[in-house]
Design a protein around this nucleic acid. Sequence first.
RNA 1: UCCUCGAUAGCUCAGUCGGUAGAGCAAGUGACUGUUAAUCACUGGGUCGUAGGUUCAAGUCCUACUCGAGGAGCCA
Length: 476
Amino acid sequence: MAPSRRDSPGMSAVSVKQCLAGGIAAGSEVEVRGWVRTRRDSKAGLSFVQISDGSCQATLQIVAPSELDNYENEVKQLTAGASLIARGTLVESRGKGQAFEVKAAAIEVLGLVDDPETYPIQPKQHSLEFLREVAHLRPRTNTFGAVTRIRHSAAFAVHEFFTKEGFCWVNTPIITSSDAEGAGQMFRVSTLDLENLPRTDAGKVDASQDFFGREAFLTVSGQLNVEAYCLALSKVYTFGPTFRAENSNTARHLAEFWMIEPEIAFADLNDDADLAERFLKHVFKSVLEQRPDDMEFCEQRVQKGVIERLEKFLDASFERIDYGDAIEVLQKSGKKFEYAPDWGVDLQTEHERFLCEEHVGRPVVVMNYPRDIKAFYMRQNDDGKTVAAMDVLAPGIGEIIGGSQREERLDRLDARIAEMNLDASHYEWYRDLRRYGTVPHAGFGLGFERLLVYICGLANIRDAIPYPRVPGAAEY
RNA sequence: UCCUCGAUAGCUCAGUCGGUAGAGCAAGUGACUGUUAAUCACUGGGUCGUAGGUUCAAGUCCUACUCGAGGAGCCA
């Protein structure tokens, strides 16, 4: 990682991370750029300025001697948030707390803070609720720096995993005309003039005059579309934005979030569960390896125990349990649940957490759910009562992945579409996939922000995405 | 959407029985110091979320609304 050359002769622009990593020889001339975290003045004729440039969790100490031309009128005006470029010598620090520091020969102040008293990001612990109200400034905090770098590493690990396993990333459409699987309320996409809507003779809004010549929405899932690519490229996945217009106001829901949906051909539910296990372990392992400083920050300041939770996850093989057996286990557990477990009803969060935290003590895959509580595309089992669906439950959070083997038999699929009163005309192209060379296939879905919440130990999903969109709030 | 709790200085909070407002941090000034979220002293900073109501008197009690948090439902 050679420092890039800059205009100034003999001087290289380097990151805070590079300065602290030990890869640059002490005595080197360097240029660093960043934002001030704190400034401490010494009457010995120097100031200490801690700067961050986002390259790592740590800050770099700039030692600014009072001999600098702009010491009195600029350096001593530096407050949290101000931006600067420092040029000088990278030296071993005389003080404790850091191995290296930069002895500045010049400090160029790019931007002071207009009103330091009202600058929201102060060198102290802020509440996450408050920081949500300043979403444009919160990336300057330790917490959001860590989450942002971890988010990047996790996203990279997702692509790395699938690439190594021979998958193709397929960009399914964000604008869609079908309501997919009825997976929830959709955002409408329209260019019609809301003040003056075209009407049909029957008085309905005339969608044929809209941009796409029909109704259109933002996607709630790329799964149906990606199945088509699966039945040609064998191993595919989506990773993109997803939208749900549900009025859910919780720490686990966003109106706009990123979803990962792999789909594998010539595969059954067991293959699907195997894939989910390898996938989660790879992402967790990568993040632990690539962002130890940020994970340590999460451990200290976000939630104690997050690192150990991930390490344990890597070591544990997933337990697999049939839904019916899980219900029996819950009923015989002697544990009092707010909702009594009953065959035919979906597992509550309290049930899921009991299964993986108390009953098994490691991640659990619950398989073969009652068909009446699951989507039309899930493959019907021979017992006539269940479908080949699975949920991966993780200690500390509950469901983290939901997936299924898909119904590849046209007659069975048609029967389900009819049974559930879905409009068959919407699924013609989906039915084609079963008419032209159908094969068993399976896949799962995973909310990327929920994965981050688990990795970082965050309490609220709104802190796992840069600009959270939730009912009643789309500021910034 | 339902239930519960909350909103007081830039931030985090205290504010007793209803009697016109307080701390820590931050900011400003000074002292001190190769300092480490430095330390010490002083100073400035408030339409108590909004609108009504009760009262001689409301941060405090009542009503409505707005916003936030926790839980539930829905789900990823």
